[in-house]
């Protein structure tokens, strides 16, 4: 299902955004604020959500992994 793949991509971009903003805060805050830490907390939270939703989407039949045998 295309919608499941779009959901996966959106969450993945959210993960990239939180990781990227953590890098910006790491350079700007110089270790004296909590922004880097919280951005990284968002990063791992979203990642766990994404991993869990892959399983749920698979169980609901919304997404399928690649087949096991190549065809050419």
């Amino acid at each position: 299902m295309v919608i499941a793949k779009i959901f996966v991509l959106i969450v993945f971009f959210g993960i990239l955004a939180s990781l990227g903003s953590a890098m910006v805060y790491l350079v700007r805050d110089e270790g004296r604020a909590d922004r880097t830490m919280w951005a990284l907390t968002w990063r791992i939270g979203l990642s766990v959500l994404l991993f869990a939703s892959l399983f749920v989407a698979y169980a609901l039949g919304l997404i399928q992994p690649h087949g096991l045998t190549p065809t050419g």
């Binding site: 993945f12 990781l19 990063r43 994404l50």
Partner: peptide, 19 residues
């Protein structure tokens, strides 16, 4: 931060290579 980075790269791999 670097550890979070390698973690995200793996997640990307897991999604794009396997799913």
């Amino acid at each position: 931060w670097y550890w979070h980075f390698v973690d995200v790269v793996w997640l990307g791999l897991f999604i794009f290579v396997y799913w």
